[in-house]
Design a protein around this nucleic acid. Structure first.
Lengths: 160, 160
DNA sequence: TGGCAATTGCTATGATTCATAGCTTTCAAT
DNA sequence: ATTGAAAGCTATGAATCATAGCAATTGCCA
């Protein structure tokens, strides 16, 4: 939930003058993009998870609602493929959403069923959108102007 | 382990002309920085984890070795604080490293003990550095030149 | 100096996430 | 008509992570 690594204790060299630049001059990890990527993602996801508790949703559940918005033709397997969730793991996820009355299932044929939002699901989705819109805005606000426009393209290059 | 979300099936509108630009024109998540951040981090961490299996180390274990490099004064609690790992969860982590002969413990007083690398630990650390150096280089190589320099500053703004 | 709060390292435990394997039913293509 | 693939599910195990509590020790402060 919290993800704020503390600087290492620095037994010797208590006073090194440039107090700016690198906030953790003795942390061998602070410069590693991979490490920073993980930390940033952890911190942001923890933040988002916290905000979503007000809607009684986990991140994965909110993501499913987002994906379902406006669509009425997606199967459990489709959603799983889009979000990289195993078929087996879709079961409890959708079960929870169904129990909460947010989704229902519509038979496509005797094998497949479409997952679609109930009215309650649409309402909840609207609130999810408020939370995520605000979240995305806050997230971008945290990155300095000079770098902001580069974040999405850079991340996109990494996620494929 | 895999983290490659597939585009959604697009039942209607099979041919929309600009085939470039947004590779997932119908994916409502593709534009969200938070979502991309999570996906990028998952993809990269899966990749790093795979590379580290050759050294029989998990990411958290390799990170501890990295942190321990050159230091001989860090306690379990120090490491935990630096990496944001609960004290309780440091126990099995360090136990595994100790069993593997990579670290040993040196009493500081009757309450605390310093964690330090054995010779084998130093050797393993050297190999960890090779893997992570290469990994960080490959990671940065994946992001287009125009955005590369902005990644670390942007991530740094998000992790604190 | 005596006492008390904080720290250390640990056990135990539960929640969450995620991957794998296997099963049955159904669809689809040859 | 048969067979291979897909859908949806169960069961299970691994890994990560958070919480609570405990005993011993330390350090601060009156």
């Amino acid at each position: 939930m919290t993800d704020h690594a503390k600087p290492l204790p620095n037994p010797e060299l208590r006073d090194h003058d440039p107090p700016a630049a690198d906030p953790w001059p003795d942390d061998p990890l602070a410069a590693l993009p991979g490490y920073l990527l993980r930390r940033a993602a952890n911190a942001m996801m923890a933040e988002l998870a916290t905000r979503l508790t007000a809607l009684d949703l986990r991140i994965s559940e909110a993501t499913v609602l987002l994906l379902l918005g406006g669509r009425e033709d997606l199967t459990s397997a489709d959603i799983g493929k889009a979000l990289d969730i195993q078929r087996a793991n879709m079961v409890p996820l959708l079960a929870r959403l169904e129990t909460a009355g947010l989704i229902r299932r519509e038979p496509i044929n005797r094998k497949s069923q479409a997952i679609l939002l109930t009215e309650a699901g649409q309402d909840r989705l609207a609130r999810v959108r408020e939370v995520t819109d605000r979240f995305e805005r806050d997230l971008l606000d945290r990155v300095p102007d000079a770098h902001r426009a580069h974040l999405v393209p850079a991340l996109r290059a990494l996620s494929g």
